[in-house]
Nucleic acid binder design. Structure first.
Lengths: 231, 231
DNA sequence: GAGTGGTCTAGACCACTCA
DNA sequence: GAGTGGTCTAGACCACTCC
């Protein structure tokens, strides 16, 4: 045996290989953990971990009593890292720049109040800022911070450090909702240096601490932006 | 004790709570697995699984010898399910429709050849199709299938079933690269029933079987489309 | 009822990395 | 060198679900 020992990676990759090479066809039942443990000379827990990871990837589907099947329609998941803008820019080898635009305390109303599940009039700090990669605009940030949840945000100074970095270190979140879509540039066009109506890539994020909303942010990128991942 | 037993979920959630409530601050070192096992009355393996999941979520960072720290900048990951278009439409409670547009075998060249790492002239099947939600256009699909990797695709019939569904059941992939961005509608505008130049949301995906490219697809959505996830 | 995955334990050795 | 996480084992009990 060249294989010093059966690791869960070895087993996972071998099973993955058998699926890819169609030794086990989509929809087919594969051997149980016990059987595979025997085949690979490993403990059942080791096989379990291998299969669990494959199930997380969506490559197989597992059900008690029914066993493990090769997924018919691999509803696979793509994972995207959600880094700080600054890290994103620096990772691309460019110099990060930050420009504070405006800040004002307002009462919640309309769509914003609704999306955050707030009563009209709840106090929000509305901040706008621009993030640069080198000298080029990279992201326009339009953010509401719920002051009931994060009172300290009322007096925070966002002239030098962006509200995202401030929040990350001050108010961890427990839940989040992300959405991404394309839109036509509105008022942010001038800040991004593009024509009004030009396509922009928008990321929206709402974060909560337990059941209390922390912040709603709209991050607008010019259309040269790409969100990329591999798996 | 009301807790019947310490499960890895209990432990994971409790640790998560301590981080959220700032009992353990960003950057702080948290107790070792041994210590936590003692505190929770669990085996070290159980604590390990809890911490491993938190590390996957990006909430903590682990290094041998150095220990486990609360992440300073939670580079958290968002996961997006990549379902079949049909399932996506049906999950939204709408009737899925498919319209085959065109298919032709071409030689690889230019950008396409380059992105797939193919020699000029490699044979590709180029397929275009439209996916509908109810009567409204949902996604325009523009796909190249590498016939060297998937010879069976040469004669596959895509008039009733989309190439994606066909591929999923015929040619599993081992690696993939996804990218998402905003663009201005080009020739696909007429199929999507939107104005040329209107913003569209584009998803591109390349899949490989081992080192051989399977397919490159460009999926174009009108700007009403939202890609959403929670965590 | 029975079979399969889900989880937990106690103990062990290993691998990496910090000092 | 020593400390911490990474992984594996052997065995056990449990929970879900199909028949």
């Amino acid at each position: 045996m060249t294989r010093s020992r059966a690791s869960y990676r070895t087993i996972r990759d071998e099973i993955s290989r058998r699926i890819a090479s169609r030794v086990w066809l989509p929809g087919a039942l594969i051997p149980g953990e016990e059987a595979l443990a025997g085949e690979f000379g490993a403990a059942r827990a080791t096989v379990n971990r291998a299969l669990r990871e494959l199930a997380e990837q969506g490559l197989v589907e597992r059900r008690r009593k029914a066993g493990t099947r090769v997924a018919l329609h691999p509803v696979r998941e793509a994972r995207f890292a959600i880094p700080l803008v600054r890290h994103e820019v620096e990772a691309a080898g460019q110099v990060y720049g930050y420009r504070f635009l405006s800040s004002v305390v307002v009462g919640a109303k309309g769509q914003v109040a609704e999306r955050l599940g707030l009563a009209d009039g709840a106090r929000l700090r509305h901040v706008q800022a621009l993030h640069l990669a080198g000298s080029a605009p990279f992201q326009f940030e339009d953010r509401y911070i719920i002051l009931d949840t994060v009172p300290a945000a009322q007096d925070a100074d966002f002239s030098a450090i962006g509200p995202n970095e401030w929040l990350v270190e001050t108010a961890p979140f427990t839940h989040a909702e992300f959405s991404f879509f394309a839109d036509a540039a509105g008022k942010e066009a001038q800040h991004l240096g593009i024509a009004p109506g030009a396509p922009v890539f928008v990321g929206e994020r709402i974060t909560w601490l337990a059941e209390r909303p922390i912040t709603l942010v709209r991050m607008v990128h010019p259309s040269r932006y790409r969100m990329v991942t591999r798996l």
